[in-house]
Design a binder for these strands. Structure first.
Length: 906
RNA sequence: GGGGAAUUAGCUCAGUUGGUCAGAGCACCUGCCUUGCACGCAGGGGGUCAAGGGUUCGACUCCCUUAUUCUCCA
């Protein structure tokens, strides 16, 4: 019998935490216990504990990764969505590698920067405010976790006249009550540190940070802690930020009070562990130590002995987490966007392993099981996906080591070249090319140059880098104007499931300039247009008011806002419009989307339940489906899938759509949810026969509409991930007919009535044997022609002069003759001409000894005589060719060559 | 999205300013010698030099378009 070990463990953990919560005794907790305690603490304060949102963001063009706990609640703050509960707490996995929080290059060099980290947070959506947030924060840190209050500092917002926001006296008052000796403990901070804004516009408010001083007593006596708050000291650090969202910043920059006030807090989990466990480094906690120990075991190098090693181990330990969590969320390393960020992180880890630890083999993938053991409890996706994660990391490591190998070869060549020229500086441009084009890290270039007593013109490199960045930025410049609001209605009702035409009003619009091209974005009160989502492309169509017809070229989603893209603005934006979706495209898309579901189902039936959707693209023309599977699909498997899909099409399953289903209910129905996908509180379930999926897309009413599904290609896109492309309905018909026509045409061409394949095979065999025969024949005729020519040879100036005209269409025959004579005899000049397709060709060959001894040049001769055939030519001293339009001149050209030799009498 | 690079035999890759240049190693086939760890020797088959245009007397080589892959930036 298999026993579920996690259950008794969970029970023990629960009891332990109960003890902690009702006891003021300070016990050192491990990370897992600490996290649970946080949840339990806030559960007792009436909070709902929600799971972490995926770290990889899918529906927000402004953000690739979740970089703060509040990301998943953005819609709530913006008023686009209602919360499930007004009090919520969780631990959110976050990744900070780009944008304003770009610490990537710091990570590893110190003991507290990370790419991926967990953020503990508690939220109030229009419920409690400053008083409770501050009191509970204090209670947890001081009373429950036993952090001595003489190590804590709180900051409050000093106020800002420009924004007309006063000093946060309210927060100050609550903090004053917390500290038993508040003097010097509550500090004021500026707008930069103590006023939080979501973006240029939108919800914002003052915040209050809690800092902790973990320095030794001696150090603390020397410099008072309050002087070091917010000064970047590694041991005086912020651990908790409490944000009080009470304003909305309008696009004119003015702040207005929000009707309901929110609390948004974020506490760095790794830092909290460090503080509670009495460590001086995040990497010394039990979050990282198991991984670091494993790195030691693999490399045979201990942590804490050599700073260079330590940096590399921290880099690897940190990046392993970032990469593994991303892959678990479905974001694989790739060559652009989010995938590229992940690739870069992994490569940075490989580089440090290579440079600092001397590892030239893939090794990071071996750390995945340890990570899964350490964090799999809280994040089960790590545990269940660990084999695949390891496999993907292994492939990436292998690929990058190969890139490094190639780069090393190149740099060795460059160093050799520099040596030859007695130089010792590699131009920045060259290093940049190595980096930019071949992905060879510049720090490695520098290192290798140094080993060879050379160095890099790093300034030159930076200049090139700057140019490249400017190029990209210029291109990416997007200049949106402010939204012009016509009707103050939040959100858009989607009516596209039932209709493809609707009466709509524009609620707001703006123009946007991308690369100098202007386009408009419209938001409606309701819309039949489906916005690009879940792999399905956005609808196109038109809106009409009066005589005016405006085309909608695309529909996209931004923060739950459905945006319709047009080339121009309607002359009267406040009119009532008839919005109609391009019906044909919509139906084609529906065919493909439903077919995608059927393919997904068929793949699972044929290959097994390890098949999971990894991505999909549904357009009117075709569909693409990526899924997890370990090997190439055999022809048999592919046809089985296709047969099953088509039989489901013929069964004409009627679509069954259920809206507003709870996640639990959907799962009990057996719906296939996408791993790492963010779903709303309730979901839409789409069924066709046995295929049940959570999906917001538009589908056919019955599968029969699809007509036929034809798989067009199957291939690999990453380790363990395969891609199928298919067409349906009329597109499938076109595809099949095109192929059949090709076969028909071939049959007609080869006049085959029986087995076409056999006929073609016979043709190929015949063709190759004929080719050989011709080659032989040509060689023979060339030999004969050559003999004839040689017999007519004359001697001019002690040189054997061979000339004549040869009947051939192929310049190769002339060349062949020339080569044979050149290899067989000295002291010869050959001039031959031929005529083909009304054009003249002449070739001149000069024996090597004549080139050397008598300075006779074939290229010079040919230039002299090419005029006779109205053409030009050139070549090397021993062989030259010319072509011209006048075949009649060949004889004169040959004669001229003879004359040239006579003249040239030395 | 923008820049750069690559695409040559089944595989891994050479190919210098356009001109006897279509090559190497491995794999494959045949024969011989024999045989353990990449056996050795001799011979052989296999390529529309990614596809399509263009420039040229002549293009793997230069230019343009397309496809795929890699790489850097955003």
């Amino acid at each position: 019998m298999v026993t579920d070990k996690s259950k008794p463990n969970k029970l023990i953990l629960q009891t332990k935490i109960q003890v902690y919560l009702h006891n003021t005794m300070v016990i050192k907790m491990n990370a897992q216990e600490l996290r649970q305690l946080f949840f339990e603490f806030f559960r007792l304060k009436g909070h709902t504990i929600v799971p972490s949102a995926p770290m990889v963001v899918k529906n927000d063009p402004t953000l690739m990764f979740t970089n703060a706990g509040m990301n998943q609640f953005k819609d709530i703050f913006l008023g686009n969505r209602q919360p499930v509960s007004r009090r919520v707490a969780n631990s959110q996995k976050c990744l900070r590698v780009s944008g304003k929080h770009n610490d990537l290059e710091e990570v590893g060099h110190d003991t507290y920067h990370h790419t991926m980290f967990e953020m503990l947070g508690n939220w109030s959506f229009g419920d409690y405010f400053k008083k409770e947030a501050i009191e509970w924060g204090w209670e947890l840190l001081v009373k429950r976790l036993g952090i001595p209050e003489d190590r804590l500092y709180a900051t409050i917002f000093e106020g800002n006249r420009e924004d007309n926001v006063p000093r946060d006296n309210e927060a100050f008052g609550y903090w004053e009550k917390c500290f038993s000796k508040p003097e010097g403990r509550i500090l004021e901070g500026s707008k930069k540190d103590n006023f939080w804004e979501m973006g240029e516009t939108g919800p914002c408010g003052p915040c209050s940070e809690i800092h902790v001083d973990i320095r030794d007593d001696e150090e603390r006596k020397k410099i008072p802690g309050h002087e070091l708050v917010n000064k970047g000291h590694p041991y005086v650090i912020e651990i908790w930020n409490l944000v009080f969202i009470q304003y909305n910043r309008r696009s004119d920059g003015v702040l207005e009070q929000l009707p309901s006030k929110h609390v948004d807090t974020g506490m760095g989990f790794e830092r909290l562990c460090m503080v509670v466990q009495g460590k001086k480094s995040n990497y010394d906690t039990d979050i990282f130590q198991p991984v670091i120990k494993e790195i030691s075991a693999i490399t045979g190098k201990n942590y804490g002995v050599n700073e260079k090693w330590d940096i590399a181990m921290r880099v690897v330990a940190d990046h392993l987490r970032a990469v593994s969590f991303s892959i678990a969320d479905g974001q694989l390393p790739s060559n652009n966007k989010a995938g590229y960020v992940i690739r870069r992180i992994l490569r940075r880890a490989v580089r440090y392993g290579y440079n600092n630890l001397g590892i030239e083999e893939p090794f990071i993938y071996q750390l995945v099981p340890v990570l899964a053991r350490t964090m799999g409890n809280q994040y089960p996706e790590l545990q269940s996906g660990k084999e695949q994660i390891a496999k993907i990391i292994f492939e990436e490591e292998t690929a990058f080591l190969k890139t490094l190998g190639k780069g090393l070869k190149m740099i060795e060549r460059m160093i050799a070249d520099l040596r030859k020229e007695h130089k010792n500086v590699l131009p920045g441009k060259v290093a940049f090319e190595m980096y930019d084009t071949f992905g060879f890290p510049v720090d490695l270039t520098q290192l290798i140059l140094k080993e060879n007593d050379m160095h890099l013109d790093f300034k030159g490199f930076e200049v090139e880098m700057k140019n490249q960045k400017e190029r990209s930025r210029e291109d990416a410049s997007v200049e949106p104007t402010d939204w012009t609001i016509i009707k103050d209605i939040e959100g858009t009702e989607f009516t596209g499931y039932e209709k493809t035409e609707d009466e709509v009003l524009i609620t707001k619009y703006r123009t946007i300039k991308v690369k100098g091209k202007e386009s408009c974005q419209l938001v409606f009160n309701k819309t039949p247009f489906y916005a690009e989502s879940g792999g399905q492309t956005g609808d196109t169509g038109q809106i009409i008011a009066g005589n005016e017809k405006i085309a909608i070229t695309d529909t996209v989603k931004e923060n739950n806002l459905v945006i319709h893209i047009t080339k121009k603005l309607p002359s009267d934006p406040s009119a009532v419009f008839t919005a109609s979706v391009d019906l044909e495209k919509r139906l084609m898309t529906a065919n493909n989307h439903t077919a995608t579901h059927l393919i997904h189902f068929a793949l699972r039936s044929v290959l097994g339940n390890h098949v999971e959707q990894k991505g999909s693209l549904v357009t009117p023309d075709h569909l693409r489906f990526d899924f997890s599977h370990f090997s190439k699909l055999s022809k048999g498997e592919l046809s089985k899938v296709e047969e099953l899909v088509n039989s489901m099409v013929r069964d004409n399953h009627i679509s069954k759509v259920t809206n507003g289903v709870s996640m639990e209910k959907a799962q009990s129905m057996g719906a296939m949810a996408l791993f790492g996908e963010k779903y709303g509180d309730t979901v839409r379930v789409v069924e066709f026969g046995k295929s049940i999926e959570l999906c917001g897309g538009t589908h056919v009413e019955a599968t029969g509409t699809i007509g036929i599904v034809k798989i067009v290609s199957e291939g690999a896109i990453a380790a363990g991930i395969r891609r199928i492309e298919a067409v349906t309905a009329s597109k499938a018909e076109e595809y099949i007919n095109k192929r059949l026509n090709t076969v028909d045409e071939i049959a007609t061409l080869i006049k085959s009535t029986g087995n076409i394949i056999e006929s073609v095979e016979r043709l190929i065999a015949e063709n190759s044997s004929l080719k050989k025969t011709i080659e032989k024949f040509q060689a023979q005729s060339a030999t004969i022609a050559m003999k004839e020519l040689l017999e007519k040879a004359v001697t001019i100036n002690n040189i054997r002069f061979v000339s004549g005209k040869i009947e051939t269409d192929s310049p190769d025959v002339l060349k062949n003759i020339a080569c044979q004579i050149r290899n067989s005899s000295d002291n010869t000049v050959l001039v031959i001409g031929s005529e083909s397709l009304g054009k003249a060709n002449i070739l001149v060959m000069v024996s090597d000894n004549l080139v050397k001894e008598r300075n006779i040049n074939a290229a010079t001769i040919i230039k002299e005589i090419a005029g006779e055939i109205n053409g030009g030519g050139g070549g090397q001293p021993f062989l030259a060719t010319a072509g011209g339009k006048n075949p009649a001149g060949i004889q004169r050209a040959l004669a001229k060559a003879a004359g040239f030799l006579q003249k040239d009498s030395h």
